[in-house]
Design a protein around this nucleic acid. Structure first.
Lengths: 187, 187
DNA sequence: CCTCAATTTCTCTTATATCGGAAACAACAG
DNA sequence: CTGTTGTTTCCGATATAAGAGAAATTGAGG
């Protein structure tokens, strides 16, 4: 235990892992999952399940499940280490890529199904004569909003990373630049 | 019970409320809270706690707490109904406004504290001689990313709603327009 | 085809969050 | 001041999720 180079020897690193776990927790992500992710993110070399379990003091089985989930989110990947039979894992370390993958994952798993469900609701609502027209209207508004957001998000995914970064750093300036270019505030 | 105009008489409306509750649940929002929000969103007139409890079949106390939380998120507001002693509530019905408030709320409650914690971690990390330089680097990257995202988000909040909508609807076009206008990919 | 390490699945315990109901509290009318 | 109505706080029961450890499975040498 406590190998050389085990980053959990560092207070700062431990803090980081702790906070990350906590934060994940609030966002509906299992704490172990988030902690493992943090650990791998900080680690300069791939780790195997055993090392992870030991570093974080959580059960081996728990690690196994959590790793599977993280792979599913494409936040970490398996890496074969030559001469070692054990499976090793490393994290995606580009923070932008990471942010995008998390957003993408949530969208796919949680928003998309909801959008679909909403579509069904609206369809159903249109057949109901008794329904308050306001309610119908609201459902449609929501649907349209989600559709717009969805399109926007997918659009943004196609933007090459460096441009995306530039775009975000521009911030408000984007609007003024476009005003010059686009002019009209056409709906 | 089952008053005229109670939208929970509608299947579609009930479906909507159900799904909304479910979705909220996955996002770490209490189901009751989400359901109440959905109900108020669909309702064409303000409702009081009693009506909500009855419509959704949940305890009065639960409604009370959930309402408080929703008010905290500024997703609903109290409205005095003349001639009625009871407190009534109505939802923000502009979907864009709603989306923004949810995002804002999450940011304030969950990201901002994390950012602050991260700052402390990095500070601490810099004092630790033993820490793997890669780990330090990664923490700093993360911090910078969060800072950028934070600035961007605050920027977007200052953009008047109609322009924001326009901006999102433009999607990818924004990039090409900017290339023509801005040219250089200056940092 | 056997052995052994590594991993995954399963089950049970424990922790956490949700929610209903009782009780306390506040506002107000008479 | 007192009774009534509406609201909030508190507490206990219950549902749900997390996590540990044992058991089962896989797969690579030999």
């Amino acid at each position: 235990m406590t190998e050389i180079n085990d980053i959990t020897n560092s207070n700062a690193a431990n803090q980081f892992i702790l906070y990350w776990g906590d934060m994940g927790n609030q966002w509906g992500v299992n704490r172990s999952v988030a902690q493992i992710h943090a650990l791998l993110y900080l680690s300069s070399k791939p780790l195997n399940a055993e090392q992870i379990a030991e570093s974080l003091g959580i059960a081996r089985s728990n690690v196994s499940n959590s790793l599977k989930e993280l792979v599913g989110w494409r936040l970490i990947r398996r890496v074969p280490v030559p001469g070692d039979r054990r499976e090793h894992y490393e994290a995606e370390v580009d923070v932008w890529e990471m942010g995008i993958r998390i957003a993408q994952g949530r969208k796919e798993r949680e928003i998309d199904p909801a959008t679909q469900a909403l579509r069904a609701c609206v369809a159903q609502a249109q057949t109901e004569s008794g329904l308050d027209p306001t309610a119908l209207r609201r459902m449609q508004d929501m649907q349209e909003f989600l559709a717009t957001a969805d399109t926007w998000f997918r659009d943004m995914l196609t933007v090459p990373r460096p441009k995306l970064v530039m775009l975000m750093k521009l911030g408000t300036k984007v609007v003024s630049l476009l005003n010059l270019a686009g002019g009209k505030k056409s709906k």
